[in-house]
Design a protein around this nucleic acid. Structure first.
Lengths: 183, 183
DNA sequence: ACGGGCATGTAAGGGGTTACATGATTCT
DNA sequence: AGAATCATGTAACCCCTTACATGCCCGT
């Protein structure tokens, strides 16, 4: 259900193609919402049927024709209603790595420590990514579009990703110590 | 795919029914893995077909017969192989609240602040839950089963939940300040 | 009298992934 | 020579949620 609003949200900042939308998602929302192209294209088609967006087709050669989507007034209203709607549920996350750790009491110490160190490396890389690539992307979009209010929110979201990774890393470091001492 | 291992993981600590498994999931893994009964029952049936678990039926009156599941040797092996398998992907989380915030530059300041305060209340309640109910549950299970190695991992997982909520709360507090000053 | 806990399931449908299909241009 | 970028989509499949179905016992 939220994919619809993700697309409307980006389209409310300006017209984009499905392909463009995928890149925006990968660059900015991927740590709290993600989608594959094979899900985005049918979703846009459905939004167009509901008249929440409109497509302009630009013929191209050697490539499929480009479809540039614009949000309609109905789409804008739909988006604003969703934004104002109160949310009273917590996110239900799924993290297979934590699940595995939870049951890893049965594992030998060495293998378990190897798993923890691997996770640590992954999360450190991700932290660096948010600090570099994502930060650059946010700055660039703000500079290009001049959307200051949106810019504030995007920077806040990016900082969430950063803080999440920091917390994860601190926890993994503690977990490694605990495992070394107690198991 | 991981639901299978969640069930095998709990069953490796002792025999349980589908109903019991649901309660264990709710009490301990819900912040990194969750499932509904309508998914658990068919999953157990399938595990039994694959001979990774075995069911003992205990007739009851006034209630459906109880099916107590035991992990088989093949199931144990399957679980251990999964535990030792390296994971090199980050979790792909979905958090509708963050998504909404990301697009909330278009929202008026008051509504936005109301949303942030609501989220803050939810996450504070969740933090308290991990510190009280979840902590009590972990202690109780350790005391009952005497599984010390597993106990260490369960307590680590619980602490992750706690740290995650702390980080979320700190971020929300900062976000409220930023919105109050900049928007 | 009503809600919650106990205890099992099925059926329909929505959301999401993986694989397939096409094909030119540009970078390494 | 091969991979990545641009650009669209479909089809099969799996995972998960929602709603339905049954029915006793216990606490408030």
């Amino acid at each position: 259900m939220s994919l619809k609003y993700t697309l409307l949200g980006f389209l409310s900042c300006g017209p984009l193609t499905g392909y463009d939308l995928k890149k925006h998602i990968d660059n900015s929302t991927q740590f709290f919402w993600h989608a594959k192209l094979s899900q985005i294209y049918p979703a846009l088609k459905k939004l167009a049927e509901e008249e929440l967006v409109e497509a302009t087709v630009i013929p191209q050669e050697g490539k499929p024709d480009k479809k540039i989507y614009l949000i309609t007034e109905a789409g804008q209203t739909m988006l604003m209603d969703w934004l104002a709607e109160p949310m009273d549920e917590l996110p239900l996350t799924k993290d297979p790595a934590l699940l595995k750790l939870f049951f890893s009491g049965a594992l030998d110490k060495e293998t378990l420590l190897a798993q923890l160190h691997r996770q640590l490396a992954l999360h450190r890389a991700q932290l660096a990514h948010y600090q570099q690539e994502t930060a650059a992307y946010v700055e660039q979009v703000i500079a290009e579009t001049g959307l200051t209010r949106e810019g504030v929110m995007w920077e806040l979201a990016r900082r969430f990703g950063e803080e999440y990774e920091r917390a994860y890393i601190r926890w993994l470091e503690q977990a490694i110590e605990v495992v070394e001492q107690k198991l």
